[in-house]
Each structure stands twice: as C-alpha cells, then as structure tokens.
C-alpha cells in the first residue's frame, strides 16, 4: 500500500498543476523478466512542471520503471501513459521526441564529437535548438571537436544533459545521472539541472539512490522498494510525519508507549538499543503532524532530529 502525503509547500503549487492530468502515469504496472518480478503493481503520477524524485535502493526497479516510461520495454501488465497517451507501438517514438533522457551510463557513438552528435540529434527532435545546444556546451565547458569516447564520466553526463535539454523536452528523465560522480561533479551537475529547469515548464523525473540529490531538487518524491512504491508525496510531509526519540536507560526512565503519545496515534517504525540507550522512530498516523511538548514525553525521553536518509532507511526497514 502506498503512503501518500501532502504538505504546506505543496499547497503553494499552482492550482492548474494539481488539476491538470499527470504527464506520466503508471497504473498498476508490473514487469517480469522470466522468473524475476521487477515491478509489482506500481502506481505513479508525475504532474506537469514538477521535479519528481524517484528514490530507491539499487535493484529496486527504478531503471526498469524508466524503460517503461520511455517505451523501451513494454510492461508485463498495467498501463504506462506519457503525455496522456499509452506508450505502445509507434506512439513510443513519437512521444520520445518530447522527452529528454539522461541515462545512468552514457553510451553515445564514441567516435562522434559533440558537434556531430548535435547534427545527428537535430534530425531526430523536431524542436531541437542548435542555439541552446551550443550555449549549453559552452556553459558546461565541453570541447566541440573532441570525440565523446574520450570524455570523462562527468563530461559525458553534461553532454547527455545538453542533448536532452536542446531537444526542448516537455519531460526530462534523469536515470541516476550522478552515479559514479565525485561529490564536486555531482553538486555541479545538480546545480546545472536546477538552473536549466527553473525557468522552464519542463517536468523532471529524477531517479537516484542518493538522498542528497533529491533534497536539493525534488518537489515531490516517490520511494520504490522491491518494485512497489512505498511512499509518494513531498519531502516536508515525509519529514514531518516521522519522529524519533531517545533515552538513556536509568531506573527512572519510563517505557515508551506503544501506540499513542499525548493523544496522538502513531506506528513504531523502528525501536531498539541496548542496556544503556534506547531509540524509537515512529510515524504519526494523524493527517497533521502533532506538536508534542517535552513535558508530554515519557520520563527520560528526548526528541532527536532525523535526516532524510534516516527516514528513508527507516521506511525501507519498516517494510522489510
């Protein structure tokens, strides 16, 4: 079952964004390779104009879901729609004309220079802008006449982003583009993405297993685990609905309640510790996250700040 949440930040999203039909929609999608079930009843909606972070562990099925969105693979069951139409048959190629794609592993024709790649791509994308492509190459400091096969991983990713954006896409799909990059290159790449899409209507679907990437970019996230979406909503909502408490174990320390605190129901996500220290992570079951005063906590317990990574890990562990 997918947990969904809205947040105050999402409330500020333009009304038309919420009311307009999703740009990408996966409805009860399953994908199986032989005996291996990769996606299992996946439901997912990406709305126009938003940056959607697609989070999951390695092997969770993120890349498979993206191949389905791109129409590279058909689903075993369920429906994949992009731009309001199912991705089937010849429709896939047509839809891809409006999709910019940056893959995890860049495999352009290695003998082509960025300039020649630009000429090649111009014939494939009707809205291709040479001007934008050239400006992106300049901005990303990419040599025009060097074979792409000799580029570093970061350069290839920037080249892929340039090509993806020069096609003037309605939808930009990034499949773990920063995997394998060093922290500096990663940060640089993300800032480039952010800068390029901030002033455009481009919808971004950004898959990663690196929480930091999501935090800096995404309006909304989906968390995928073992082919199933376990959370879809805003980052703030995810953060607000999760709380953690810790206590030094002394004779005076109270036991932590099991299902309710100060009248607010919750579910234990993770609980544990040793004879000296105990920690509890919980998820509030109410729509509005409660504001619990320290005095309302059991004796000896204090609140702990959680990072998004902690929350992600806790959610995955809870499911398992």
């Amino acid at each position: 079952m997918v947990e969904t949440a809205t947040s105050s930040s999402e409330d500020t999203t333009p009304a038309q964004r919420l009311s307009s039909p999703p740009l990408v929609s996966l409805s009860d999608v399953s994908k199986r390779y032989g005996k291996l079930q990769v996606l299992n009843g996946l439901n997912l909606n990406v709305r126009p104009g938003e940056i959607y972070g697609f989070l999951g562990r390695n092997g969770a099925g993120k890349s498979t879901a993206i191949r389905l969105m791109m129409g590279i693979s058909p689903p075993t069951s369920g429906t994949v729609s992009v731009f309001g139409s199912p991705m089937r048959g010849s429709r896939c190629a047509k839809a891809r004309q409006q999709i910019g794609f940056v893959a995890q592993e860049q495999s352009f024709y290695p003998w082509m220079t960025p300039q020649r790649l630009g000429r090649f791509m111009r014939g494939l994308y009707p809205d291709w802008s040479d001007e934008r492509y050239q400006s992106l190459l300049t901005r990303f400091e990419l040599p025009l006449n060097r074979k792409s096969g000799s580029f570093s991983g970061g350069m290839k990713a920037r080249l892929a982003l340039s090509m993806a954006l020069a096609g003037m896409p309605r939808l930009l799909i990034l499949d773990e583009p920063t995997a394998g990059m060093d922290p500096v290159a990663r940060r640089e790449f993300l800032s480039l993405v952010k800068a390029e899409v901030t002033h455009s209507d481009t919808t971004v679907f950004f898959s990663t297993h690196l929480i930091g990437d999501i935090e800096s970019l995404a309006d909304r996230i989906g968390i995928l685990d073992q082919g199933t979406l376990v959370y879809e909503g805003s980052l703030d909502a995810l953060s607000n609905r999760t709380a953690s408490f810790t206590a030094e174990v002394t004779p005076d320390t109270d036991a932590f309640p099991l299902d309710e605190l100060n009248g607010y129901p919750f579910a234990i996500v993770q609980a544990g510790g040793d004879t000296r220290k105990q920690t509890v992570i919980l998820r509030w079951l109410s729509d509005t996250p409660p504001n619990i005063p320290p005095s309302a906590l059991p004796n000896g317990w204090v609140p702990v700040e959680l990072s998004l990574e902690d929350i992600f890990v806790a959610m995955i562990l809870q499911k398992h």
Binding site: M70, C92, A93, R96, A103, S107, F108, P110, G149
Partner: peptide, 17 residues
C-alpha cells in the same frame, strides 16, 4: 562495433523505432 561500444543503449532511447 555498435554493440561493442554499447551504442544500442543510446539508440534505444532515441525517438525512433
């Protein structure tokens, strides 16, 4: 040559059948 360089991964994402 194309298969060795994995260029098929690139072409399959392009807007062609």
């Amino acid at each position: 040559r194309d298969y060795h360089s994995k260029a098929y991964l690139f072409t399959e994402s392009l807007p062609v059948r």
